[in-house]
């Protein structure tokens, strides 16, 4: 009885392996290490892919660190890692550092991440924000000036507004300030900041006059405690969702996330196998961990790009 079940299981696995798009029988024979570091935003996707890759290539040791996009690029440009997770494109200074150490690389887009602007569920006055209003609230000169809800729109309550956001070390903060204020890393300083987005969720959920922003995944997981606010970028109000992020209508608060692969590393079969697997699975996995997948043709394009890069 048991032997039959094992046989059945084995043949099913064989079928599944044959049906896969990638050449899994090759991956199974691979050995070696794949060293990844970088953004904590991209980390959940990479971790999930690494977990899945273990099933296909059990002898390849994939390790993932969370030094942040910038910290990761430092190691990447020294040749200490094979792949860097990045929640923004590489900076000129980082690209130069790579060139200085003869590190050639390719950048592959793997998913979208949306930023949600949220308030307390008891907040019944905000219907939407325009990008200008968000700028007015968050720009450096707003400190000491925009202190009450009525300072944004006069008909809103004459109550103190309490702001929450990720701390300045995060790529999320960089992205939000760049998209809203116009300059990365510049904003008012008098807001409650934390590197732990769950702290922000708790703060906003218990504070009627709060306003904050963070990754869409944190809103999706805490929908009952928060109220998401649509953003008007001049083309009408758009509420962040998987659809509006993936069809790019939720601008400017959605962004692509990347992996950077070093050329020297990509010559190694285990790294090549892993990256190909990554591109194949990124669509379904990114949804699984709360991110938004790219349109299918972009994955096909990424795969071609990586193919020519390693040739």
């Amino acid at each position: 009885m048991e032997a039959k079940q094992i046989l059945l299981g084995a043949s099913l696995m064989l079928l599944a392996a044959c049906g896969g798009q990638t050449s899994k029988n090759n991956d199974a024979a691979l050995t070696g290490n794949v060293k990844i570091d970088g953004s904590s935003t991209v980390y959940p996707i990479t971790e999930a892919i690494a977990e899945e890759y273990r099933v296909v290539a059990p002898n390849v040791k994939v390790t993932v660190g969370v030094s942040g996009t910038g910290g990761g690029f430092k190691k990447f440009s020294r040749g200490e890692t094979d792949i860097n997770d990045a929640s923004r494109p590489i900076k000129t200074s980082e690209a130069e550092a790579c060139r200085g150490n003869n590190i050639e690389y390719v950048s592959l887009m793997i998913a979208y991440d949306g930023l949600a602007v949220v308030v307390n569920p008891q907040n019944d006055w905000v219907d939407y924000f325009t990008v200008e209003e968000l700028k007015k609230i968050w720009e450096p000169s707003a400190e000491g000036k925009i202190m009450k809800w009525s300072d944004i729109r006069p008909k809103w309550p004459n109550e103190r507004i309490n702001l929450y956001g990720p701390d300045a070390a995060s790529g999320t903060y960089d992205y939000f300030t760049e998209a809203v204020v116009g300059e990365s890393g510049k904003s008012r300083g008098d807001f409650t900041n934390s590197s732990d987005d769950n702290v922000l969720v708790q703060g906003i959920a218990t504070d009627k006059y709060s306003l904050g922003f963070f990754g869409l995944a944190y809103y999706e997981e805490n929908m009952s405690k928060l109220k998401v606010i649509g953003v008007d970028n001049g083309k009408g109000v758009v509420i962040p969702s998987f659809e509006s992020v993936s069809n790019s209508s939720y601008t400017p608060l959605s962004r692509p996330v990347f992996i950077y692969v070093s050329k020297a590393a990509a010559q190694r079969p285990e790294v090549k196998g892993f990256v190909n697997f990554y591109i194949d699975k990124a669509g379904s996995i990114s949804k699984d961990v709360g991110y938004v997948s790219l349109p299918a043709e972009l994955y096909t394009k990424a795969k071609e790009e990586f193919g020519t890069f390693t040739r």
Binding site: Y43, E47, A50, V62, T63, G65, V66, D197, N198
Partner: peptide, 27 residues
């Protein structure tokens, strides 16, 4: 590291530790 899918087999191996795993999960 944050993600290490193996038990270190020697002192030169890469590693993670409990506080690191806790930190990773709380965020």
């Amino acid at each position: 590291l944050a993600y290490v899918p193996f038990v270190p087999s020697g002192p030169m191996d890469q590693f993670t530790v409990l506080p690191m795993q806790i930190f990773n999960w709380t965020s």
